[in-house]
């Protein structure tokens, strides 16, 4: 019997009796794959070949870096919105800070969802970092140094992307160790205030966020250019958006250690 006819027979078979539904569906699947095997292989072959070429090409990798970077920017916004709950409530007068409820809330979400988000973010970060480093190594190898270097308009932030990126990564490891691994959701507020009371710890946070500003300032407008959404007309606008985004986000992040040091949060 030809596979296609078998497919329809199976479909009929499973429609006749509910008991046979699973069996029927399995057979249907097997025959369908068998019938379309050559086409499926041909299509997958084309797609996989092109995908492989895409992720090894210069532009393809840059696009992946831009997309993962955009995801991380969105994560920053979410993270910041959560952090701002620290200014809610009045712990000095016995009203618990909103951030305690927020942190507890995060931990009461289903474990699978929490881990899906964590692993997803880790995967995005990994792609972003690995591809960037691969591109950077190629860039260094493609260049020959001048005896006298000159720069016309490349910004300091654009020339230090890898440096600020590494700094942010180191900060991230420390930050996760300090506030996630050794954190206690119920006492989140007190934990943060205790940590930032140390000027060294606060200083490190502020320095790292300044690096984040430089990274984001070039990264955000770079995303638009790499994804082909930029033209002469809108490029200055993207630049303004990037600087404003960086100032607002990084300023808000820095406000927490500053507030602790100034005694506004205690």
């Amino acid at each position: 019997m030809r596979p296609l006819q078998s497919c329809w027979l199976c479909l009929l078979f499973c429609c006749c009796s509910r008991k046979n539904l699973v069996f029927g569906a399995c057979f249907f699947g097997v025959f369908a794959v068998e019938y379309f095997r050559k086409d499926v292989i041909a299509i997958m072959n084309d797609i996989i070949t092109t995908a492989c070429k895409f992720v090894t090409s210069s532009i393809g990798r840059k696009i992946l870096v831009a997309l993962t970077g955009a995801c991380l920017l969105l994560f920053l916004v979410g993270h910041l919105a959560g952090n701002m709950t620290i200014y809610g409530g009045d712990p000095g007068n016995g009203v618990p800070s909103w951030i305690d409820a927020y942190a507890t809330g995060l931990h009461t979400m289903p474990a699978w969802l929490l881990w899906a988000i964590r692993l997803g973010l880790a995967a995005i970060l990994l792609i972003h970092v690995v591809l960037t480093l691969a591109l950077k190594i190629e860039n260094v190898n493609a260049r020959t140094q001048y005896q006298k270097e000159g720069t016309l308009k490349a910004t300091l932030s654009s020339r230090t992307m890898v440096l600020t990126g590494i700094m942010i990564f180191c900060f991230l490891v420390f930050h996760l160790w300090q506030l996630t691994v050794n954190g206690d959701p119920a006492n989140c507020y007190q934990h943060i205030v205790d940590a930032f009371t140390s000027p060294i710890c606060s200083g490190f946070y502020i320095l790292a966020i300044c690096c984040l500003f430089m990274h984001v300032r070039h990264g955000l407008q770079s995303v638009f250019q790499t994804l082909g959404l930029s033209t002469r007309k809108v490029r200055p606008l993207y630049n303004i958006i990037a600087v404003l985004f960086g100032l607002v986000v990084c300023g808000a992040f820095i406000s927490i250690p500053v507030a602790v040091l100034c005694g506004i949060l205690k």
């Binding site: 210069s58 591109l135 493609a142 490349a154 770079s222």
Partner: peptide, 8 residues
């Protein structure tokens, strides 16, 4: 090398 959007 690969473009890093510095516009030099």
């Amino acid at each position: 090398g690969n473009c890093t959007n510095q516009y030099e």
